[in-house]
Amino acid sequence: MQPPLLEKEGNLLLPFRAPRTAQMNASAPIAAFACVVRRDLLLAMRRRSDVATTLFFFVIVVSLFPLGVGPEMNLLRTMAPGVVWVAALLASMLALNRLFSGDYADGTLEQLVLAPHPLGLLVGAKVAAHWLVTGLPLVLLAPLLGLAFDLNAKSLGILMLSLLLGTPTLGLIGAIGAALTLGLRGAGVLLSLLVLPLYIPVLIFGAGAVEAVAAGLGAGAHLSVLGALLVLAVFFAPWAAALALRISLE
């Protein structure tokens, strides 16, 4: 609608393009990865309201809890890590529906599957872009919400760190569920049924890290496990999600 602006944003797509010199181009996978990330970021930029909806959902769920259990600060302080984490879990699950459905509806998903690159890599790129627009804002917003629950500075820092390590894992696991439920009726509810049980370890160690700090113990062990889960998810989830996409597209 605003040609000059689009023109400017569109330039984002150009610089990382790798020249096609030979059949086996070493930088081709990186270029493809960057291309998908840039494309999805650009699309998210043009649909900012979708991103805002997820964030708003996160904030509103967290603010509902004091209304439900009462404004007693001691109670709220002990609940805070769990509340923020559960809200983050629900918010990132809510956003999952959009991960593949748009590409599925307009046929670009088929073209991604047919691109001469490992599909797992492209799925990884999509999850990365998805995390940047839906996961990272949660991480940045969490301390603000934590303040409303009277968490101290150290707890807030650990809360951010645990979300930083945990939310990418949520996106990666969620991608498998999103790919499996692609195009099904009632996909949204089904997706939550499939994905939420698998989120439990991340929830336990994420919220546990903050609680451990609040209790005067170190959060090192919790954060290490979160990191380990992330590494596992990075290695296996894109591959599984790619297989799920192929199954769903048949």
Binding site: I176, L180, L194, L198, A240, L243, A244, I247, S248
Partner: peptide, 8 residues
């Protein structure tokens, strides 16, 4: 799809 979910 069920198989993949069961394996995961």
């Amino acid at each position: 799809a069920g198989a993949l979910l069961a394996i995961v």
